[in-house]
Design a protein around this nucleic acid. Structure first.
Lengths: 355, 355
DNA sequence: CTGAAAGCGCTTACAG
DNA sequence: CTGAAAGCGCTTACAG
């Protein structure tokens, strides 16, 4: 009974197998696994050897049950997975794996009925996650639900989205980027910079607010921004309009894909980029380097972002709350920067200024 | 002792709370949860009500432990997440949620040392997943390891990648697509179609083999394909070369992003697309509609693909093996199709054929 | 149809 | 330092 040489190869070894092989109690193995304290080095060694020989891996399930704290980080995001989110997930996965944790990616369909979303959230939470990351919580209801259901001692980190007072929340450099890009365009000699905004709530810290600030600083009247949708066709239409408007020589577009759509619209009315009109995007989506012309844009390191969220969770779990809940937090300051490519240039010879 | 009115709001209710409230045994609640058989309708109702009132959700952890089968599907993919994989994940998530299952997305870094990957795999498997999906197993070692460690009764579905005999494996329509695109280009009047291949093993059923077949069918000598890397810069260089070669009027490129790189190279030597050279891509990446000119390409429904993988797993779990392990499987035949856009046209007036 | 009991694999006080 | 025991929340034979 309990011979270590079973033939049925697939039943994976449990902690009791290890204990038996090492000749110690289950408790000791557990201690070894968790911190290694209070153990004779002799026992330590034999346990280590047993684990080694058996190729033992603790059951995440059992641990989670016993601990009421599983070794998993729940990552929630909308199913549309806009650019940036994927990189963020990658950053989360990498950081989690390094810390020996798993990631549970949960995508909720923002169109879906709330009940279904709520079910998913509750099931996920029944997993006793170590911590929770919510990416770009644009869909308020789902975010609310998660926040409501999460146990009080489970750290939650929001990434992007509207500011939610009282929550630990990471922000991208949207405002800073919008400001920098606009400044750059002005420095090229443009009299004014127009803006095509991504569909988002007009909050204080956005690409749009950065653009606005840069203009106001120079005393330039702020033209009404165009509001794009996520549909590229709309972007084309906007480009088509912009191309026919007078005095437009520089446009800062809220993201790279929309910028490409705008360029198509411009092209359709015979405007050249950057000879006639300069275009700048945002994000540094890999495609920004592939368009003709390639796009000047603002790069952000979303992987670093995801990694940062994991770090915050781990810190909290370990008791050190590096960030106050009520203070938004910008991460990785050296990871964001202007990337100048082919789509921006000085304005066409500036005769005829309307001064 | 056991009053249902605890104030501490966050401790979520367990099956015993439900049993107590409903006035039945835990076993009965469990039966209700699992199939609803052998229960008086009276009991059923009171259990239902109790679940309702308590907002009870079974613990995935405990279920997984007790069942040696958790309600989770493990999805493995390389961390680079090439286009298509993200859509596939989405399809997997949707289908899983509909079936009441969770998805555990695990990204392994193909550069990483094998030990680390192996650890991650074993931890994931310790979760007793319902089934396993491995996306594009390009990194053989990781795939081998998963296959080795997976319990025999856990269904594994491979998505794409090199054919692994004996495994249940889903394939995209690469061969068919390559064939169709090449045929289309020939039908436009081009004498020959060149090919820029994505970096992949040259197996039987690829975009490249489809291209080859189409050419051979017409008795056209097959020119040596260019082999691209995943680096767009290389694609530009290839475009630059192609633009200077004689007699090149049509190029089928193995994926949309690389096609955009090729177009940049062509543009840099003054070749116009499609007036001088027709370009076709592959995948119907959203960016294919945004380039100037927009790309003719071959669309595949990767979401359907992911959903198909889930369906296969669920079928197996339920005992009905719809697909034989030793037969590769193409899914969703009506989901793949040629998409004609602006980048393809008849060849420039065909005087001077080298016949 | 239904309940008491054992077990899934671990952790955590509790006694040595 | 170390082990026996109870418990985490569920499921599954086993007896009614």
């Amino acid at each position: 009974m309990g011979e270590p040489m079973d033939i049925g190869k697939k039943k994976s070894p449990s902690i009791s197998d290890v204990a038996a092989l090492a000749g110690v109690s289950i408790s000791s193995v557990s201690r070894y696994l968790n911190n290694g304290e209070h153990l004779t080095s002799g026992k330590k060694q034999s346990i280590a050897r047993a684990i080694q020989m058996l190729d033992y891996h603790p059951s995440i399930l059992a641990r989670g049950l016993a601990n009421s704290r599983s070794n998993t980080i729940a990552f929630f995001a909308g199913r549309d997975l806009l650019y940036g989110v994927v990189d963020c997930i990658r950053g989360v996965e990498d950081a989690a794996i390094k810390a020996g944790a798993m990631v549970n990616v949960v995508l909720f369909d923002e169109q879906q009925n709330f009940d279904s979303i709520s079910q998913t959230i509750k099931s996920t939470l029944s997993t006793n996650p170590l911590g929770i990351i919510i990416n770009q919580p644009r869909y308020g209801a789902a975010c609310d639900e998660i926040l409501r259901d999460a146990p009080e001692d489970t750290p939650v980190v929001l990434v992007g989205g509207n500011r939610r007072p009282g929550q630990c929340q990471l922000f991208t450099h949207d405002d800073e980027g919008g400001y920098a890009i606009t400044k750059y365009l002005l420095s090229l000699g443009h009299q004014v910079v127009h803006h095509v905004a991504v569909p988002e709530n007009d909050e204080a810290q956005t690409r749009q607010s950065g653009w606005r600030k840069a203009l106001e600083e120079e005393g330039i009247p702020v033209p009404p921004p165009y509001i794009a949708s996520w549909d590229p066709k709309d972007a084309e239409k906007i480009g088509w309009e912009l191309g026919q408007e007078d005095g437009v020589t520089a446009v800062f577009v809220g993201n790279d894909e929309i910028a490409m759509g705008v360029m198509r619209g411009l092209h359709s009315v015979g405007k050249r980029v950057p000879e006639d009109i300069s275009i700048a995007g945002f994000d540094d989506n890999p495609i920004a380097g592939l368009s003709i012309p390639s796009l000047t844009t603002w790069r952000q390191d979303f992987e670093l972002f995801g990694a940062g969220a994991v770090k915050l969770i781990l810190n909290r779990v370990n008791g050190s709350a590096e960030v106050e809940n009520d203070a938004p937090y910008n991460i990785g300051d050296n990871s964001a920067q202007l990337v100048v490519r082919e789509s921006t240039a000085p304005p066409p010879s500036s005769h005829g200024s309307m001064k």
